[in-house]
Design a binder for these strands. Structure first.
Length: 467
RNA sequence: GCUCCCAUCGUCUAGCGGUCUAGGACGUCGCCCUCUCAAGGCGAAAACACGAGUUCGAGUCUCGUUGGGAGCGCCA
């Protein structure tokens, strides 16, 4: 039997951070065990499912590189199959029709709650053997065992036991003829040969009833692994207000998919003291059984740090591909300035997101529009600034080759000839090149401007000198 | 209310009865380096929720308390 996991999102919104981690763990577990990864879209809620959401999920998975071996499979396309299985359960006396109205069900629950009991369906039609009626309220309910308990060994939570007396006869098929989640998942996981179910721990409560359905169907019960939640930085459930955004938002915000994945894999899982994991390493080392059983919080600061680690260690050409996307996103034409890979090299240790990187790269692609007053008065207003700029203009114009090293040599020569410290040379030049007093090392800053541009900016800055 | 789950530095975690005067990472703070900003180096502060057991010995096992969370739908 092939090892098989599945990721089964419902398309009622984008792929959020918790879903992304679940998808990652399913994907890793399948890869690690040499099995297959199935993507199944749980769209039986016709009210809330949208095509846009389906697309958003697909886009998110693609961006993260979590490719499925099988799927996407859509549940709505399998309705005939659910009806078939439902009929079988009905024929075998393992399910029955019930005819209560929603109001009656609500009243039933309220009454139970009032008595301090768990709100449940009371099984009124369970043993009545009433003939089938074509009632608009009719639903098919599962005959849950009355006695005993359900026990399963969760791969992350450990042994969980549930008394059948806690479970009621839940709905298998709704009055509209569509299956409920608890029924559809079982049929699907059975049909698709899923051997390991990895999902959020908000499903732990559903597991016992699902196991009962597997058993009623005579199907093998898969192994379960329930992942703890990911909370917001404040320890509260992720909401629209703090961080419950789609993974594609992380792209917009300037994070590399490899950094997000690395962050996510370490959130709830670890391998000794290791923090950085390449994709092959994750596949090799990941084991769902090593996942922590407690909830964790999402920490943007650490994500930022990791993102920067990738800026520093990945091939600049790779990061440049993403940078170009961001440059274009803010209206900069990468063709109007230095090679993006060189920008990556210059800014890698200075920013944590591609968004910042693109913003800070702006000076090399577009003319300076704003001059920081303080910077100008402090560094262009000094007594030595004019001489520095004049010399820089001459020497840079005379350079044989325009390289970072050559530019660096010019700057050192100026400092030596004028008998000035590096600060006295670098700062006026920095203001000339950028209009501000903050930028990467001065040689890179000048180099990235390009000779023509650098010389023009020196002229412009010279005119702003006091003397 | 009922059922289930969870509990080590601010955060992510290591720890699978003795090697824990609890380790690493992010963040924070200090120092160094330094052309700005960073990055980097060095160092510091910082945690076993509480209470009973079991045991020669408990962060590690058991129970309880407290505190979080999830579920109790013809949502998934």
């Amino acid at each position: 039997m092939t090892f098989r996991t599945r990721f089964a999102p419902s398309p009622t919104g984008f792929l959020h951070i918790g879903g992304a981690r679940t998808a990652l763990y399913c994907w890793l577990e399948a890869r690690h065990r040499g099995g297959e990864f199935v993507l199944r879209v749980e769209d039986t809620d016709r009210e809330r499912s949208t095509d846009e959401a389906v697309q958003a999920i697909l886009d998110g998975m693609h961006w993260l590189g979590l490719d499925a071996d099988i799927g996407p499979i859509y549940q709505t396309e399998r309705v005939a199959r659910y009806r078939e299985v439902a009929d079988k359960l009905l024929a075998e006396g393992k399910a029955y029709w019930a005819y209560e109205t929603r109001e009656e069900i609500d009243a039933m629950r309220e009454a139970a709650r009032a008595k301090g009991e768990k709100p449940r369906y009371n099984g009124y039609y369970r043993d009545r053997n009433e003939p089938y009626r074509d009632d608009p309220n009719r639903v098919l309910r599962f005959k849950n065992p009355l006695q005993g308990s359900v026990v399963f060994e969760d791969k992350v939570k450990g042994r969980i036991e549930w008394s059948n007396s806690e479970l009621d006869d839940f709905v298998l098929m709704r009055s509209d003829g569509f299956p409920t989640y608890n029924f559809a998942v079982v049929v699907d996981d059975m049909d698709m040969g899923i051997t390991e179910v990895i999902r959020g721990d908000d499903h732990v409560n559903n597991t016992p009833r699902q196991i009962n359905v597997y058993e009623a169907l005579g199907a093998p019960v898969p192994v379960f692994a329930h992942l703890p939640m990911i909370l917001g930085a404040d320890g509260q459930k992720l909401s629209k207000r703090h961080g419950a955004v789609g993974v594609m938002q992380y792209r917009e915000d300037g994070y590399l998919p490899e950094a997000l994945l690395n962050y996510l894999v370490r959130l709830g899982w670890s391998h000794g003291d290791q923090e950085i994991f390449s994709r092959p390493e994750m596949i090799e080392l990941f084991d769902i059984a090593d996942v922590n059983s407690s909830a964790s919080r999402f920490d943007m600061a650490k994500l930022g740090w990791l993102n920067q680690q990738y800026f520093k260690n990945e091939d600049p050409a790779r990061v440049a591909v993403e940078l170009v996307w961001h440059l274009e996103h803010i209206g900069i034409d990468p063709a109007t300035g230095p090679a993006p890979a060189e920008v990556v090299t210059a800014l890698a240790d200075r920013v944590q997101t591609l968004k910042e990187m693109a913003e800070r790269a702006r000076v090399w692609y577009t003319p300076i529009t704003e001059w920081d007053e303080k910077a100008v008065s402090k560094h262009l207003g000094s007594a030595t600034a004019p001489a520095v700029l004049d010399k820089a203009g001459q020497k840079l114009a005379a350079l044989d080759q325009w390289t970072v090293e050559a530019v660096h040599g010019v700057i050192e020569a100026i400092a030596a000839e004028l008998e000035l410290g590096m600060g006295k040379v670098a700062q006026p030049l920095r203001v000339a090149m950028t209009g501000t007093q903050v930028s990467p090392s001065i040689d890179h800053t000048v180099y990235l401007c390009g000779r023509e541009n650098a010389l023009a900016r020196i002229v412009e800055a010279r005119s702003r000198c006091v003397g």
